[in-house]
Amino acid sequence: MESFLLADAESVVARARQGEEAALEALYRAFEGPVYNLARRICRTKEDAEDVLQETFFEVCRSIGRYREEGSLWGWIRTIAASKALMRLRRNKYRDTDELHDELVGHLKEETHLRMDLEAALERLSEVSRAVVWLHDVEGYTHDEIAGMMGKTASFSKSQLARAHARLRRWLGEEVAA
C-alpha cells in the first residue's frame, strides 16, 4: 500500500528519523486518509476520529525511530491507529451489547419494512461489533490480533463478528434480496 501512497518511502522514513519536519509531514499526507477512514469506522463521531488521527500521527512522529523496516510502514501506522481508536472507545465507555439496537431496529422494521443501506447498518452496530467487523473483514486482522488490541479473548472477537454479521444480514434485508 505504501508504494502506492508514498513514493520513495525509504528515504522519507530515513529523513523522518532525523527529525525532519517536511518528511514527517509527507508521512502525514500519505496516510491521513486511510488512518482517518479506519478511525471513523471505529469511532462514533467525526470529532473522535479526527482526534484519533491526530494522536496517531503524534505517536508516529515520536516513535518513527523505533519502526523496523521488516514490517510494512502502513501496517505499523495502521496498528497504532487501531489501538488509539480502540482506546478511545474504552474511554468513552462503549456499550458491549447491541440489544438496544435490536429492539429499536426490530420495532422499526415491523412497522415500515425498513431496509437499511450498508452505511446505516454499520452505524447501528455497537461500537465493539463494528470495530471487530471492520478490523477483521476489511483491515484483515486476525481474531488473535484483535483480541490483543482490545484486551479481550479471541473467542470474544469471533462471537462479536458472528453477531455483527447476523445483525447486518437482518438489517440489510438480505433474506429478500437473495
Binding site: N37, R41, E50
Partner: peptide, 16 residues
C-alpha cells in the same frame, strides 16, 4: 473511503 474535514497536521506538528 471517508476523509477528514479538517487538516490536523498543524496540531500534530505543534505538539511535536
Amino acid at each position: 473511503p471517508l476523509r477528514p474535514a479538517r487538516d490536523r497536521w498543524p496540531a500534530v506538528r505543534d505538539r511535536v
